[in-house]
């Protein structure tokens, strides 16, 4: 088993005196799907945003795909990590002034210097895989939320990442649009992608996750396999959280 992400004692503090991350350690194996759950403000989004350098650490050490990040890191390792780690956001964050195709091909052409034609071919393949090939020449605002999020997944996949990070990918969607995005993620997991998913989707966690990690107040409360987490959580805090979910 090779380790994709190893975090040791991560600390992140936005305001002095309070810690968004308070000594978080974890390992994500290559090919594994880790679902991170917890109440809002528990630090789960902050955590996965440190994995590609969107949040700078205040303490601890990260090893992402063999690249080291710590509180003193430079820009260079972050750029390398970002090329190898894809990220999908709650608010999709598509580029509204670019067509769907250009949204997807921008990074492959500009960052990886792939030929435009080849990048477009790959983009169409990915859109096909996401079931929205016919949207290629539209603009983001012309698509539904679910379609936009699938474009965002395709955009991240276009760089052939080794790890995918999902930050509450279905939280901004209409209920009837959630399934199409989860299905795309399910397929990705089946294909062996290493994934870290922050989500409140219990069904997805139960079915797709290899492990579930529960966080509260910047700390890891417990990590277990989904079956035992949902039926027989060890910690009182996790049980309380689960009892309040529908």
């Amino acid at each position: 088993m090779t380790v994709a992400i190893r975090a040791t004692d991560l600390v992140k503090s936005y305001t002095p005196g309070s810690r968004a991350l308070d000594g978080v350690s974890l390992e994500v194996a290559s090919g594994e799907v880790l679902v991170v759950m917890g109440p809002s403000g528990s630090g789960k989004s902050t955590l996965i945003r440190t994995f590609n350098g969107l949040e700078k650490l205040d303490g601890g050490e990260l090893d992402v795909l063999g690249v080291r990040l710590d509180a003193a890191h430079e820009e260079r390792p972050v750029c390398e990590i970002r090329r190898r780690v894809g990220m999908v956001f709650q608010q999709f964050n598509l580029f509204p002034h670019l067509s769907i195709l250009d949204n997807i091909t921008l990074a492959p052409v500009k960052v990886q210097k792939r030929p435009k034609v080849q990048a477009e071919q790959r983009a169409i393949e990915l859109l096909d895989q996401m079931g929205i090939r016919e949207q290629a020449h539209k603009f983001p605002a012309q698509l539904s939320g679910g379609q936009q999020q699938r474009v965002a997944i395709a955009r991240a996949l276009a760089l052939d990442p080794e790890v995918m990070l999902f930050d509450e990918p279905t939280s901004a969607l209409d209920p009837e649009r959630v399934k199409e995005v989860l299905d795309a993620m399910r397929q990705l997991a089946r294909d062996g992608m290493t994934m870290v998913v922050v989500t409140h989707e219990l069904g997805f966690a139960r079915e797709v996750a290899d492990r579930v990690m529960f966080m509260d107040q910047g700390q890891v409360v417990e990590t277990s396999d989904p079956a035992s987490f949902f039926t027989n959580a060890r910690e009182e805090r996790s049980r309380r959280f689960l009892s309040q979910m529908v």
Binding site: N52, G53, L54, C79, R82, R83, V85, G86, M87, F89, Q91, N93, L94, F95, L106, A107, K110, V111, R155, A156, L159
Partner: peptide
Amino acid sequence: PRGQWEAFRSLGLSEGLGFRRI
């Protein structure tokens, strides 16, 4: 929106390129 910065950064675009293109 800040999300646009995060999006281009997470795609590995440099600050200069992201500023100009996004």
